[in-house]
């Protein structure tokens, strides 16, 4: 009886001091839970399961080459906005094929691209300076002061924002501060293209080895005087006239290559008087050779050859001068008897 007298009030007080908080918090939790469960049904937004599948197929480098904020944004854009499946540069054709499979469309043939500089200047020794710039070591910052510290207001400022922007270690800077692109490492993500305040970098198809290495819109004598390397495009138009497929045009005192037409013959680089056109494969192209037994002496190849490297009389076997041949393969395409081979 005595024990019960002690236990009963203790039990009631314990029940109220523990029970009430438990009940109140428990009820709160229950109500919140129910509300959330209800809300999950009512406010459910249907997510396309393909988004997650596509995200798994992407490299998830979040480089932004596709133009979206990241891989998740691109996956969402493919499904919901119908964006092309082949925009992922680091993923390349593999990723495009995988995504195309998920989306049930055909994989679009994708050209692998690389970044190239359209300026031969840059670094310490290759640039002519307007003034000594002392400030934040960034092209973006330097370009704001009197149109940049370098004399050419179209050329490389030389603080290598492109180097800092490259996430794939494809841009290197040598001892003189000159930047170089390692084409094997370049994924064409476009980070450097966006980083360059002078817009000196563009992406070109990897199977084209010629590019205009100048962005100067200046007129001839001055443009050349202010260039650090004097390899300026002087808009002479020689490349336009010599180009066998008319892929080059002069726009605003500057030659521009249309890579959809370019056949990568390298002829423009050999004719350019200022060496403003760079040909990475110069001297490495295969030379044409005519098989004597197949040649009927039609002279088509001799007429088509842009460097007049092929000579021969009508109905006689023609010969190729290996020194003059630049390996443009024009004659191979035109020969009616398939008598010319590249060796």
């Amino acid at each position: 009886m005595l024990i019960l007298n002690i236990i009963t009030p203790l039990a009631t007080s314990m029940a109220s001091s523990i029970g009430i908080p438990v009940i109140i918090l428990g009820t709160m939790g229950l109500i919140f839970g129910l509300v959330l469960a209800f809300a999950a049904k009512v406010f459910a937004v249907k997510l396309d399961p393909r988004v997650e599948l596509i995200l798994a197929a992407l490299p998830c480098a979040n480089c932004g080459a596709c133009g979206k904020a990241g891989c998740a944004g691109y996956a969402d854009a493919i499904v919901n906005e119908g964006v092309s499946v082949s925009l992922c540069a680091p993923g390349g054709p593999d990723a495009a094929a995988k995504i195309a499979k998920i989306m049930g469309t055909d994989a679009v043939a994708m050209d692998k691209k690389v970044a190239v500089y359209h300026c031969s200047s840059g670094g310490i020794n290759n640039t002519k300076w307007k003034y000594a710039y002392q400030g934040i070591e960034s092209c973006k910052s330097a370009v704001n002061i009197a149109d940049g510290p370098n004399l050419c207001s179209w050329g490389c400022i030389g603080f290598n924002d492109c180097f800092a922007a490259c996430k794939f270690d494809a841009i290197s800077v040598d001892a003189e501060g000159m930047r170089h692109i390692d084409l094997a490492k370049c994924t064409a993500c476009g980070a450097c293209v966006a980083a360059c305040p002078r817009k000196l970098i563009t992406l070109i198809p990897i199977n084209r080895n010629v590019s205009i290495c100048c962005s100067s819109l200046g007129k001839n004598p001055v443009a050349r005087q202010i260039c650090g390397t004097e390899q300026t495009c002087i808009a002479c138009g020689l490349c336009c006239r010599k180009c066998p497929v008319q892929a080059i045009t002069i726009e605003n005192n500057l030659a521009v290559i249309d890579y959809t037409k370019c056949i990568d013959c390298g002829l423009c680089a050999t004719v350019c008087p200022t060496k403003a056109i760079v040909d990475l494969k110069a001297g490495m192209r295969k030379k044409a050779e005519i098989e004597a037994e197949k040649c009927i002496g039609c002279t088509i190849c001799a007429k088509i050859c842009p460097t007049k490297a092929i000579t021969g009389e009508v109905k006689q076997v023609h010969t190729v001068d290996k020194e003059t041949c630049i390996g443009c393969e024009q004659c191979v395409v035109k020969c009616p008897k398939q008598a010319i081979k590249m060796l």
């Binding site: 918090l25 919140f32 509300v35 959330l36 809300a39 009512v42 406010f43 459910a44 937004v45």
Partner: peptide, 18 residues
């Protein structure tokens, strides 16, 4: 903590929908 967590979750759902 309970209130804030539930509230934010709820608001997030409402915003996502509306």
């Amino acid at each position: 903590i309970l209130t804030i967590a539930a509230l934010v979750q709820f608001v997030e759902m409402v915003i996502q929908k509306n």
